[in-house]
Write a protein that binds this DNA or RNA. Structure first.
Lengths: 307, 307
DNA sequence: CTTGTTGATAGCTTTTCATTATCAAAAACA
DNA sequence: TGTTTTTGATAATGAAAAGCTATCAACAAG
């Protein structure tokens, strides 16, 4: 590493002040210190650099060529230092500046458009950097500090992350048009799924596990094929390959673009809990409720869109 | 003026060290301080900026987004600071870097080519900024610190400048071809000028006063016309308007390009003393003899060129 | 359940930086 | 010319900052 620098920012301030005032006393006044303090500091700097910066004598204080160059660089350094302080001020509110946000793939396409808009409106100083990843990867990224906060579904092992609830996302039954269970619009009991063939996502998606446990009461058959995404899954259902459980958040988008019939499940309907999670004790902790509030309104809006 | 900055270069060094090592203890080792010193300084900086820079916890030390930005700026500032120190080192020798040099107009055209070459060869680190001005202006510029050193002729009022001799520049008689005094090549006595019409430079050139005092013994007549430069003066002589005294330094150049006859003056021949002058006590003081040595060799070379 | 590692904290010492008082040199004034 | 004023440098001293050693609490690894 670099050796300790033989100069201080204060010394540079003093040098610039003298260069501007061409007068030690007035410069000291500008710096709000006594004149000897300034004289001593400048002498110390000249000693440390081995260079005369000022020429003291008749005709007042003048700069040596070396001093001329050093003053120019000093101004540059001081400007950069003030910029650093400004930057820090901008970051004082954790909800200003860049924030690395994660979201799971079964939520991203349905929530992101709405959430991005909400953030732009309600937290204009925030610059979100969205990363789409599955729960496992998100938890690791949060733990390791590669990510600041994330939107995911509970019943995952969040180790020691903190979280706040954003909303409850109930499951609906999706069936191909013409299927027996596609008749009627009222709630369907889970018992009706008995013996039906169910389509699920591939391993690694928390939604897969949640859907499985929702069906756990009914003896259903899982198809060999496992979809890589919700849109694919819905396409499969539409083509008559089987049934599936869809979270309400996906309904407005998915039911609109594929010929599937959707029906709610009978109360108490199974649901997944959407949360905002962050590393416990992270810089976000205090501001997390504010962020969660904004996101919650977005999530609620999406859940209300259900046809 | 700017308020005192709430941060120190050392703090920035510590921050960068921790960011690099992602480890307080190792960073402290790199900085050659005990770990608590580093912890305290970083805590103080975080307090001063009102921003968490590092996230301490499982998985080691990580940067907050604010920290990421601050570290980048810190690196920038530290780099600039080291550059400043480097710059100072380059200026430690006053004969390295820029030097503002003055020279009087009656020397400039004859000495500068030679001197510039000598400096380039013998003081390669020196970057001379030549300014041509008359003695009066040069003395003022030196006093006021607008110039660092100058080449001029003595018998000027140098007030409290210091100086070193560079050489003696004896006067020669210049006459038009065919003029009575142009016969023969041997030394001419000043008495021979009795009653001759002399051409001189305009007011303000020290050479004018020096030539006048050289002729003071002989009753000569000065022409109404006063030349603005030595080349002009020589042209006037060549055209038969009169005689003049030329310093030897100008002979090689002037006698070669105008049809004038040049003869030395009888011993003890009048001369002007060429010196290097600088502000007493200026940063140049210690290095002036070295500079003068280089210049003296150049001046001697020019004076030897005489045909 | 110990053991080793992390960064934070406490108590004390050293260093740094500032203060006031004063000086010598140089301008400015009379 | 001699005084007065103004300049930056210096000395003595006190307060603040930053360092050190020792120790702590939290956590991970045996």
């Amino acid at each position: 590493m670099s050796a300790p620098l033989p100069l201080s920012l204060r010394q540079l301030q003093y040098v610039v002040a003298v260069a501007d005032a061409r007068h030690f006393r007035r410069a000291a006044e500008q710096c709000a210190v006594a004149q000897p303090a300034l004289s001593t500091q400048i002498a110390a700097l000249e000693e440390a650099l081995g260079v005369r910066i000022f020429e003291r004598g008749r005709g007042g204080v003048t700069l040596t060529p070396a001093g001329e160059a050093l003053v120019a660089r000093s101004r540059e350094i001081l400007r950069a230092s003030e910029a650093l302080v400004q930057e820090a001020r901008r970051h004082q509110d954790p909800l200003a500046g860049t924030l690395r946000l994660g979201i799971i793939p079964t939520l991203a396409p349905y929530l992101l458009p709405e959430l991005a808009t909400r953030i732009r409106q309600d937290l204009p100083a925030l610059v979100p950097r969205w990363v789409e990843e599955r729960t496992r990867g998100i938890v690791a990224a949060l733990q390791e500090g590669r990510m600041d906060a994330s939107i995911l579904a509970l019943e995952a092992d969040l180790e020691d992350l903190d979280w706040l609830e954003l909303g409850r996302d109930p499951f609906h039954l999706a069936a191909p048009r013409g299927h027996a269970l596609a008749e009627g619009r009222g709630p369907v009991g889970l018992g009706a799924l008995e013996g039906e063939r169910m389509l699920l996502l591939e391993d690694g998606h928390c939604l897969r596990d949640q859907a499985l446990s929702a069906c756990s009461g009914a003896r259903v058959e899982e198809l060999g094929y496992r979809a890589t995404s919700l849109p694919t899954l819905v396409q499969m259902v539409a083509s008559g390959a089987g049934l599936t459980l869809l979270p309400r958040s996906a309904l407005a988008t998915e039911a609109a673009r594929a010929p599937v019939q959707v029906r709610p499940l009978e109360e108490p309907a199974p649901f997944r809990t959407l949360v905002l999670a962050w590393r416990r004790g992270s810089f976000l902790s205090e501001a997390a409720p504010r962020l969660a509030g904004v996101l919650r309104r977005g999530v609620e809006a999406v859940l209300r869109e259900t046809p």
